[in-house]
């Protein structure tokens, strides 16, 4: 596509237009996916509680999210008089910008990646670290008690689980030998018994896949780790003072982050756009379909856990992060690197 535009309107401009279209082809479907996934989340949650869920707007209620979006769009934007107005409005912008930006390096197919950078995994880590700012600035700028406490909790929770995520990623990098996400997916081709694609099927890496999945839930503040917006304690957490579309940006950002974490689970441990089995006929199905199936499967797991597991206490959350996941993943770095030193590098 880039070449076609370049032949049409010149080299530089052609590249610019083609890249812009590619970006919008990620960004706009992402927002659509988030709207549908919010609907799906509510529907799954309702089904597990033997309720109907949204079923009025459109067939089976599929247009519910769009109706909600229109409603919040027309609502009044309330900026509390005590708030730091600039920061108050910048915080949701940071959250949603960062939630979109991480998708730049996710490979959707063999060559379907916007920015095929060498350090894709580091980029994801850096971007997800910036996400903390959106929340902590919101809590501070609201100048209200509950958002402030919630922001403190959120920051401590996110950094705690980022530590174990960091070590889990080291084990993946050790095995694949690259930070490039497409390279990591390629390294998983025929990984187990020369026929199964995916690090997660490797018994040595499977525990890390589980740790990553649980840490991903904690990192995005999803139930059972949704202490940042525990409604019985903190009203609505750091979003308490927000209203209208500015509030909805946090929703969009949260679900975009959940989808990102599902995609990362798929890409890092379950073969990304590769079919689960390295068998030629399965490659006729486009890679993006495999990735979507995996992402939706993980999203179902997220919803399932949300509907069934009771919320953690804060001390339990911290205990799980620092006393179980951190030593475990640290030990696994030793285990995996030692195993590779003996088997692959022959020491």
């Amino acid at each position: 596509m880039t070449e076609w535009f370049q032949s049409l309107i010149g080299h530089g401009l052609g590249w610019f237009v083609a890249t812009l279209i590619l970006i919008l082809m990620i960004s706009l479907p992402l927002m659509l996916a988030v709207a549908m996934v919010i609907y799906g989340d509510r529907k799954i949650w309702a089904a597990m509680a033997l309720r109907r869920g949204p079923n009025v707007v459109g067939p089976f209620g599929v247009l519910q999210s769009f109706a909600d979006g229109l409603k919040v769009f027309l609502q009044e934007v309330i900026i509390p008089s005590a708030a730091n107005k600039g920061l108050f409005l910048i915080a949701p912008i940071i959250t949603f910008t960062v939630a979109q930006l991480a998708w730049a390096v996710i490979p959707f197919g063999k060559h379907m990646v916007l920015a095929n950078i060498n350090v894709g995994l580091l980029y994801i880590l850096a971007i997800s670290s910036i996400g903390v700012y959106g929340i902590i600035i919101a809590g501070w700028a609201s100048n209200s008690k509950y958002p402030f406490y919630s922001a403190m909790r959120a920051a401590a929770q996110m950094v705690s689980y980022e530590v174990s995520i960091g070590f889990v990623l080291v084990t993946v990098v050790l095995w694949s030998g690259t930070f490039n996400l497409s390279g990591i997916v390629e390294a998983q081709r025929a990984h187990v018994f020369g026929i199964i694609n995916g690090f997660g099927f490797n018994p040595l890496l499977f525990p890390m896949a589980v740790v990553f999945l649980i840490s991903a839930m904690a990192e995005t503040g999803r139930a059972p780790f949704d202490l940042t917006e525990a409604e019985s304690e903190l009203v609505a957490g750091y979003q308490t003072e927000y209203s209208s579309m500015v509030f909805a940006l946090y929703w969009l950002g949260e679900y975009a982050n959940v989808l990102l974490m599902c995609a990362l689970n798929a890409v890092l441990f379950w073969g990304g756009w590769l079919p689960p089995i390295d068998w030629a006929p399965l490659y006729h199905i486009p890679g993006i379909v495999w990735l979507f199936i995996k992402v939706l499967a993980f999203f179902f797991v997220f919803s399932w856990v949300k509907a069934t597991v009771p919320r953690y206490r804060y001390d339990q959350l911290m205990r799980l992060g620092w006393k179980i996941f951190l030593p475990l993943s640290l030990f696994w770095v030793f285990l995996v690197s030692g195993y590779l030193m003996i088997t692959r590098y022959g020491v």
Binding site: P92, I93, F96, A104, Y123, S244, A248
Partner: peptide
């Protein structure tokens, strides 16, 4: 890395529009 810079601009514009338009 250039597409990422461009993406940053697009993402900022979309999020900014969602704050200013309402």
């Amino acid at each position: 890395y250039l597409p990422i810079l461009l993406f940053l601009g697009v993402a900022l514009a979309i999020s900014g529009a969602f704050v200013v338009l309402p």
